[in-house]
Design a protein around this nucleic acid. Structure first.
Length: 501
RNA sequence: GGCGCGUUGGUGUAACUGGUUAACACGCCGCCCUCUCAAGGCGGAGAGCACGGGUUCGAGUCCCGUACGCGCUACCA
């Protein structure tokens, strides 16, 4: 057993927001670190310092914070270590693992880069770089004269690289299939494969957990580790998260739906989203937990292992343009489960924030009306899929006026169904006024008796009252609603509703 | 073009080292409960495991091929 602490990192590039795939990568790293009592490091791969760093990083930080993925070290900025990366390139040059390439820079437009590469490759077999075996003396001389060059890694001609990926198994690749990659640009700027390796070495990273798109890059990085004489970390590559079209998730194409802050802003509970994300590409390997869906954060930490990571890409099944099912239905269901079951003391502040945002919050809910408030939440949470539902469906409970909406279909179905309601509702209101105890049981007894006397079905009055009080056709049991709304608002709303009949 | 990775119902996943009619969750449909909706309970439709071969008494599980998807192939990350 090694006593060394496990050290992992999440290394996003600063794109201005944390997308769902990145969040999942961060989560798996975090779970792994916490499970092993290790260290979780945040490193920003800001290769281009020209862009506004702070603004670009903020979205990522916000996302991580909301998800509750706290890092132990960082955030570090890759660009702060360019000197070390450069030094490493020259070290490799000295040791003969790399060489100067004086070939003039080939300009490529970013537009169709993939296509250009494919075409160039299709044109013919790879030829060895002419500067590969330039003598040290000549190379040094030309460099001394100021001739521009890049530093390329000298991939051996014979043999192959091998590493074991914890998810995908043993990976092999012939050296001849790996090009002499550029380590340092002609302007002295270090390139990705060099920088990650240097940073991971410097930060003592023991396990590299990242997206599968880096699986084939790993061979190059292994080569660099070996040339630098450093131990190779353990690698675990994660399957990708795809859009419903099975394509890559992209902000440009799919919009804000791929950003985790969207889930925060649309009323998700962080634990619910974390739970959902954890099950995208991972499951508790085998046995007793295989059939469960709901896992607390603590359970995820204790159950998480690299063995449970799936190999195939997962589809994140959101529906663009659907108001009700705007994101993956399972995520919505899970959020509902969390809203229903988390302890009141955890739900309370979340609903408070939601009501504050919609101008419905009153400080008395925290003191003298706390019991009433919490009871109302227990009524509403049963049906809430997001925190927004507390301010939309919940609005009639938290406002004294008629600022809540009357659903057209509900009015038609429950109020305009029977013209007699025009008379009955005000009479019912007057009857309610006489009640001293305004409770679930007393109001029910009164209403049922009233219905009997008037010779109408209780259901007629019950449904009409629901719509009169909440504007909706659906909701909690009516007498719970009546008791929660209270006597004076109930009376006022019944009379008001008579005008809608 | 080359190299690599993947492929279980609509979606997420399960199925110990090959062995009963492929399981669970979400979603969908129906019934029960009921003042509505939700929740809950019960039941149903939906994959024969991408396709085609092979090995085997027996394959989703092993082998080969094909298709499709994805990644890398850049002085991007």
């Amino acid at each position: 057993m090694s006593t060394d602490k496990i050290r992992v990192r999440f290394a996003p590039s600063p794109t201005g927001y944390l997308h769902v795939g990145g969040a999942r990568t961060a989560l798996f790293n975090w779970l792994f670190a916490r499970h092993h009592n290790g260290v979780f490091i945040l490193r920003i791969e800001d290769t281009d310092r020209l862009r506004n760093d702070d603004a670009m990083v903020r979205g990522i930080l916000e996302g991580l914070q909301w998800l509750g993925l706290d890092y132990d070290e960082g955030p570090f900025h890759q660009s702060d270590y360019y000197e070390q990366h450069r030094a490493a390139a020259y070290q490799l040059l000295e040791s003969g693992h790399a060489y100067r390439d004086f070939t003039p820079k080939e300009e490529r437009s970013d537009e169709n880069i993939k296509q250009q590469i494919a075409e160039a490759a299709a044109r013919g077999p790879k030829v060895l770089n002419p500067y590969r075996n330039l003598s040290k003396a000549e190379s040094d001389a030309r460099a001394a004269q100021g001739e521009p060059y890049v530093i390329r890694f000298k991939v051996p001609e014979e043999g192959k690289t091998q590493f074991r990926d914890e998810v995908f198994g043993v990976q092999e690749r012939d050296y001849k299939d790996i090009e002499d990659l550029v380590l340092l640009r002609s302007d002295g700027h270090p390139l990705y494969n060099l920088s990650v390796v240097c940073d991971d070495i410097m930060m003592g990273i023991t396990h590299v957990i990242r997206g599968q798109d880096h699986l084939s890059n790993t061979h190059k990085q292994v080569l660099i580790y070996e040339a630098l004489g450093k131990a190779v970390p353990v690698f675990a590559h994660l399957p990708l998260i795809l859009a419903p079209s099975k394509g890559k998730l992209s902000k440009r194409k799919h919009g804000e739906i791929v950003s985790v802050t969207t889930y925060r802003d649309r009323g998700f509970i962080p634990d619910a989203f974390v739970n959902f994300l954890a099950l995208l590409g991972w499951s508790p390997s085998s046995g007793e937990h295989a059939d469960r869906e709901i896992f607390s954060r603590a359970e995820l930490v204790s159950l998480f292992s690299l063995e449970g990571i799936h190999k195939a890409n997962a589809v994140f099944n959101f529906t663009e343009g659907d108001a009700r099912n705007w994101t993956d239905q399972k995520a919505l269901w899970m959020n509902h489960e969390y809203i229903k079951t988390i302890p009141m003391e955890k739900l309370f502040p979340m609903v408070k924030a939601e009501l504050q945002q919609s101008g419905l919050w009153r400080d008395e809910y925290e003191d003298e009306r706390r019991a009433w408030f919490e009871h109302t939440l227990t009524l509403l949470r049963e049906r809430a899929r997001t925190l927004h539902d507390f301010s939309s469906h919940g609005r009639p409970y938290f406002t004294d006026d008629f600022s809540f909406e009357f659903d057209e279909a509900a009015v038609k179905k429950n109020l305009q169904k029977d013209p007699a309601l025009k008379e009955l509702l005000p009479q019912l209101a007057d009857a309610f006024v006489t009640l001293d105890e305004f409770t679930h049981d007393s109001t029910e007894a009164l209403l049922r008796k009233f219905a009997e006397e008037k010779g109408v079905k209780a259901g007629l009055l019950i449904n009409a009252t629901r719509t009169a009080l909440t504007g909706q056709a659906v909701g909690p049991g009516l007498f719970d609603v009546v008791a929660a709304i209270g006597k004076s608002r109930t009376v006022a709303r019944l009379k008001h509703a008579a005008q809608l009949v």
